[in-house]
Design a protein around this nucleic acid. Sequence first.
DNA 1: TCGAAAAGGTGACAAATATCATATATATTT
DNA 2: AAATATATATGATATTTGTCACCTTTTCGA
Lengths: 231, 231
Amino acid sequence: MGSENRCENCIVRQFNSLRAMSKDELKQVSDSKISKSVRKGEAIFEEGEKLNGVFCVRDGVSKLSKLSSNGKDQIVKLATKGEVMGQRSVIAEETSNLSAVAVNDMELCFIPKEVIVNTLHKNPGFTFEVLRLMSHDLREADDVIVNISQKTVKQRIAEAFLYLKSNYGEDADGYLVLTLSREDIANVVGTATESCIRIISEFKKKGLLKSSGKKLGILDEKKLSELAEGF
Amino acid sequence: MGSENRCENCIVRQFNSLRAMSKDELKQVSDSKISKSVRKGEAIFEEGEKLNGVFCVRDGVSKLSKLSSNGKDQIVKLATKGEVMGQRSVIAEETSNLSAVAVNDMELCFIPKEVIVNTLHKNPGFTFEVLRLMSHDLREADDVIVNISQKTVKQRIAEAFLYLKSNYGEDADGYLVLTLSREDIANVVGTATESCIRIISEFKKKGLLKSSGKKLGILDEKKLSELAEGF
DNA sequence: TCGAAAAGGTGACAAATATCATATATATTT
DNA sequence: AAATATATATGATATTTGTCACCTTTTCGA
């Protein structure tokens, strides 16, 4: 096994709570972790499932969502390289409240919960780091609640594109690196797919967005953010 | 000072993270805390304010909300006896993302952040307990997001009444102990005050709710929960 | 590479919800 | 108790958004 497969050397660790682990703890994690490849569209875990560990995202993006009885799927969060999924369930010792599905091909490490829980009880630095990251997630969740209830669908879609640009960037030609289907965008902002398509078409007609194949790009960021703010 | 004013003897501590503190740590908290009485409608802290500590709710209820530019106020959470407010901001070292306003007369203890932060770095049990409670808050926030985007206003209002009953109970005559104004209920479910009033009137006409003065009571819990589920 | 399936797109219409106006009841102040 | 402010209530209407139907384009597997 090459040394790049050791958590000690894994670069994504710099972005998550694992960076607060001691060398020994990290060694334990590395020895017990299981690497997984997940293809686009595949499920990583399902709502209601009991998680026996957490998933550290090495590459790719996963959508964390909740399905309702009427068949709608609300995406609550997108998890990217460096993020750890399933922490909440492991900490609260509850089944997962969300499903995780790969948005594109992914590389993951599964870390058994025992190692995590042990470290949580022994290493306050690690616990604090997890707490800090979760408090960030909580703030973002609060913001989502306020956005959904106070902004129009058009504002939320405009905001979603700004979010995609600032979080995942754009390529040399100005297209967003992370390509989401219209349905996924609709599920992020909490609207019907048709409404989402309609508004994206409108944005394209107005010269705010451009498209090439499946890719979408932002043409007029200023107007898009004015729109998001409600002007 | 009577012994009931010591955190060591405070009963609300049983419901929050302070129960994981050592005797010494608790003594420190008690020696540095400041008791406050807040009248109904008064602000405890404002969105954007830098918090120098947390607020432990001894009695009463506070609404945690965020104001938008269009004047609407989304209530993200209600904090009750035993809950600690402002933790997120103190932990993340950010200004508060929410405002806290008293829904009824309240008794609070202000605990300077130094004591909290010190304990977070020294006592993993305490940190873990804070983490556990925050992971619960995060789950609830996820649920709110899904509810707001997938359920109708009518469903969410039905749900709000069930929530008020199960969390705050009802008096001998079957009226909800926690009385919220129609505006507050509207701000909890994320709708216009008029829409909220209209639906409550409808519920009363249909025999699902009863009212007496400002008080509201649940008459038909079964139908109300069926309604909340979408039947 | 052909053909099915999925994704993207658009119109017409229905339903849900917000907004505005105005009235009445209730609480609060003086 | 009168005066004022605030909360509740309801109708009329506008706006937003969802739903259904149908079509075109793209993707992907056999």
